[in-house]
Amino acid sequence: MNVGRTRPVWAFLTGPYALFLLVLLLVPFANIAVYSLHPYSPTKVFLPGLTFDNYRKIFDLYYIRLFGRTLRLGLITTAVCVVLGYPLAYWLARARPRWQAMGLFLLIMPLMVSAVIRIFGWIVILGRKGLVNQALAALALEPVKILYSDTAVVIGLVNIFVPFMVLPVMAAIERISPNLEEAAHNLGANWYQMFRRVILPLSLPGLISGCLLVYSLSISAFVTPALMGNPRERMVAQQIYDEVLVSFNWPGAASLSLALVLLTAALMFGALFATRHTGRHEKVS
């Protein structure tokens, strides 16, 4: 009998994770959405009542700049990750298994170190009297102020997020047969032409995944900008942190969080929509 066929198998396969998402992501999110619509009180989590004040506050020049800065730093971080990560991903995808394993290990290693320890390492290197400036001094050059600047935040973020770029791109390039590269050369393409016409379009889905990952992670970063950035130039996550844990303004923090998530989601769906069109050829009739 075909009783089994009528059973929704997809529900069993996706069910556990869907439940996980529902309980641990969507429910808290809904909670946050509710918070964001309540009035703020300094002594309570929120007051009863309904208000849009928390959102109105965001359309202030300060918050618009804050979001602008955050998105800009995310964009720069993503761009640097592409520039540094793509060649690495290509090399790893084409390397012998032993080199690949070693390369992956080195790549993932920064993720195994606590964020705070890793950042203190950067402070030692980038600080006013850090290794970089000592080296510059030894060469009789002017010291540079890197630590506590946007540059330091980008360095710190790139350090952690490069693997999130490399892994999906590497996976995409691994699926491209080296024969395709040879075929392109055989048809008269030099390396650049081969890359632009074969590797790049075929690895584009991986590249877009990587960019989305790095971008979403960067714009929600908290620890790195807090410890390495200019304390006067903040990112949205730091503002949310201060709202919750310093002024206990939960509704204010909730509205900022939701705004950030909605913005991220909008960018993500935009990018996925764009990939869907480049992925057309994957469909087999």
């Binding site: 992501l25 606590s114 995944s209 992670l217 970063a221 992925g279």
Partner: peptide
């Protein structure tokens, strides 16, 4: 097919990666 993977990666990494890094640290 590709978009499904990236969406899943996105959830896994953003939802749990970022959140757990931030949360566990505090």
């Amino acid at each position: 097919m590709k978009t499904g993977i990236s969406r899943r990666q996105f959830h896994a990494a953003l939802g749990w990666g970022a959140a757990s890094i931030a949360l566990s640290e505090f």
